[in-house]
Design a protein around this nucleic acid. Structure first.
Lengths: 201, 201
DNA sequence: CAGTACGTTTAGTAGAAACTAAACATACTG
DNA sequence: CAGTATGTTTAGTTTCTACTAAACGTACTG
């Protein structure tokens, strides 16, 4: 804590709110397998009314420049922050993408998609391999079983893929559409609360 | 490789298929932040026509008993495998849950739910804190900005929560319903293929 | 052209997580 | 009751990842 008064000075209240929020975003990030600092940086940017410089972020988040630099670049690649260049200003400034559906889109596209395709193609290749080979008579039933299971998984992956692709299209439909869509058709239970009654942990 | 002939002996073809598949599931698991061995174990169980014992799994997956023991228990907690007890048989046997939607349900319930609630309540607490405090005049606008952003995030989390809860209810509706539901209402584009043209890797 | 302000890169480090090896617990079996 | 088969727990090791500290590159500034 040798730093001499960080950049912004909100009232004690707002400051603690910001700290809590940043810490919360850290936890979320960590939970999703992303670096803690990444979540913190996004949190700081998300709350800030105006774009922040790299050193601002160092002050807010408490990690070194290098870490902020790499994390902020990663966030930009995911479409979660935007880099802003100002004329007559050497520093770069960063701001958070406020539309969370865009964030989800970015993460899904960047992170899930690749591995998803790999998994799907692995299954398909296995399926092909089973179909192509001729098996000893006592193994034909095993081969058939493999085909069945692999086929089921392929089907599931396709469905999930469709689901993800569809969700990604919801970008401009916004929440209301989504909720209306789901709420009416799928849920037969009468209570207005879509969550099951599990309030506790 | 000092082991003396593992339990099963499929033809070289089926064996290699199985190996590939297991390796693929390992990758999937690793990608989702789960232990590699966990994915491998599930893969082995998923392909097997009948339940496997713990030592069978050791032979298939290539990790030690201890690792299989803990991982298989974890899988059971997630609802991804079932433990089967046979009369007059000391060993336990395990089989994979073949319905993948149940798997998704299990993972979502066990893993996402808790952290999800924490995040949401963090946001709510921050929101309350901002609302409760009285701020210096020059900070009221900042406070308002915090409220707006926090409110947006809260709304998003609620929506996402509803989405997840709804997906979890699809358990018995199966894929067709889901796809029909989505395909008709949401996607206006005419082509039958829900994926963008990315067939290659 | 020396000096400074920024951002990036690199080498090294610290912490976490999953695995191995082996001890342990428990229950059947002869 | 000794012996064996089975699953669990524990201590220690390995491996990976995100961070720090510091060097570096580059472009402005006086």
């Amino acid at each position: 804590m040798t730093e001499s008064e960080p950049v912004l000075t909100a009232s004690p209240d707002l400051e603690s709110v910001r700290r809590d929020f940043i810490e919360g975003m850290s936890r979320v990030a960590a939970f999703w397998g992303l670096p803690k600092a990444m979540g913190a940086i996004y949190g700081a940017l998300y709350l800030s009314p105006e774009p922040l410089s790299l050193d601002d972020l160092v002050a807010y988040v408490g990690v070194t420049k290098g870490a902020v630099s790499t994390n902020v670049r990663h966030l930009a690649r995911l479409g979660m922050v935007r880099e802003e260049v100002r004329l007559g200003e050497r520093r770069d400034f960063y701001s958070a993408e406020g539309d969370f559906w865009k964030v989800v889109k970015g993460v899904l596209r960047e992170r899930e998609k690749a591995e998803f395709d790999r998994a799907l193609s692995t299954v398909r290749q296995c399926l092909d391999a089973v179909g192509a080979a001729d098996h000893a008579p006592e193994e034909t039933s095993l081969a058939l079983h493999y085909q069945e299971r692999l086929g089921q998984m392929q089907g599931f992956f396709s469905s999930l893929d469709t689901l993800v692709a569809t969700v990604m299209r919801l970008d401009d439909l916004r929440h209301a559409s989504l909720l209306g869509l789901f709420g009416k058709r799928v849920v037969p239970a009468g209570d207005g609360n879509p969550r099951e009654g599990s309030e506790e942990r």
